[in-house]
Design a protein around this nucleic acid. Structure first.
Length: 316
DNA sequence: TTGATTTGACCGGG
DNA sequence: CCCGGTCAAATCAA
């Protein structure tokens, strides 16, 4: 289980390297447009700023986190990916450096045929295939901003065999386009986002009442503690003014540590914990930049709602 | 006309 | 060779 902690392009460090590469690419783009559209330049600059800020957050979190909960043998987070020598800890998946995140949602059913789930990002369909033993074809989407911003995010959508009203969505890679820039801005009020906070964009997937946590990089005993009597996680949401069902004065919201919230059942699976979340009746999908921490929060507030999430309890 | 979708071709890994 | 993922030309839609 713990190998999940440092698999693949490892922790915050590898991600930061990835983001830095992205920043470099953006700068190159910006240079190419210096004489051109000021609008585009502004956009690129904003994006560079956003990604940079995110990287800083990652580094901060990683260091706060790293002193305690990281497994040994962790290389300096900032040098791991560049230095060659990858973790041998990673047992499987040498291919596909991309992060994979699968979600099953119930189809909107009403109206608009099989219009794929609106998850707050703009996707462009680029293919569809019949899959071997599957009853329904698989559709392939990439981020609309692939060419304009080099965003490599991708997703696959396929109806479940058993129940065609269910749709499996597999997200691959991360969005590097400027879609979550608004989160930081929205939280401008007063103190910046809490120390252990990461921005994310809510993706409206269904009106499920659950928050899903996958691939947590915590020691088993921590999970035990969560299951026992601690709040599984602490979620601070600061929605932009005038958006969504969370009134501004309500934010930040947190998960009340009521009994229902402790229904974590660590035994369910080692990488997939579904927690009832009465405070948030909503659908959405939140992906943390930290590779090993991936949270899906379902939220019915609306599409593309940007929020900040306090993950301090993750970092214990 | 531009931008998205459709759909068969193409291609690489197993 | 087969399968799954992507490309790209044709087509559709705003």
């Amino acid at each position: 289980m713990d190998m999940e902690i440092v698999h693949g392009n490892g922790g915050g460090g590898g991600l930061v390297v990835t983001e830095l590469s992205h920043i470099k690419e953006l700068v190159t783009q910006l240079q190419g447009h210096l004489g051109g559209s000021p609008e585009l330049c502004r956009h690129l600059a904003a994006q560079i700023s956003s990604v940079t800020e995110h990287s800083i957050t990652l580094i901060t979190s990683f260091h706060l986190d790293g002193g305690r909960k990281r497994s040994a043998g962790d290389v300096s987070p900032l040098s791991d990916a560049s230095g060659g020598a990858p973790f041998k800890t990673a047992k499987k998946r040498k291919t596909s450096e991309k992060k994979r995140h699968q979600v099953r949602v119930s189809s909107p059913g009403a109206g608009s045929g099989d219009n794929p789930v609106d998850d707050g990002h703009s996707w462009r369909k680029y293919g569809q295939k019949e899959i071997l033993g599957a009853k329904h074809p698989r559709a392939y989407y990439r981020c609309t901003h692939r060419h304009s911003q080099g965003c490599a995010a991708t997703k696959q959508v396929q109806r479940a065999d058993e129940d065609p009203t269910l749709i499996d969505v597999v997200y691959l890679g991360e969005h590097t386009c400027g879609q979550r820039a608004a989160a930081g801005q929205a939280a401008t009020t007063g103190a910046e986002a809490p120390e252990h906070s990461l921005g994310a964009t809510v993706q409206s997937l269904s009106s499920d009442l659950t928050v899903k946590v996958e691939g947590l990089a915590v020691e088993p005993e921590i999970l035990q503690a969560w299951g026992a009597n601690t709040t599984p996680f602490y979620l601070l949401a600061t929605p932009p003014a005038g958006r969504g069902c969370l009134a501004e004065e309500q934010g930040p919201l947190s998960v009340p540590s009521t009994s229902e919230n402790r229904d974590v059942s660590p035994a369910a699976s080692d990488s997939n914990h579904v927690v009832p979340f009465p405070a948030f009746e909503a659908a959405g999908d939140l992906q943390f930049g930290l590779e090993e921490v991936l949270v899906s929060a379902f939220h019915e507030c609306g599409d593309g709602l940007d929020i900040d999430i306090d993950i301090s309890s993750f970092l214990v």
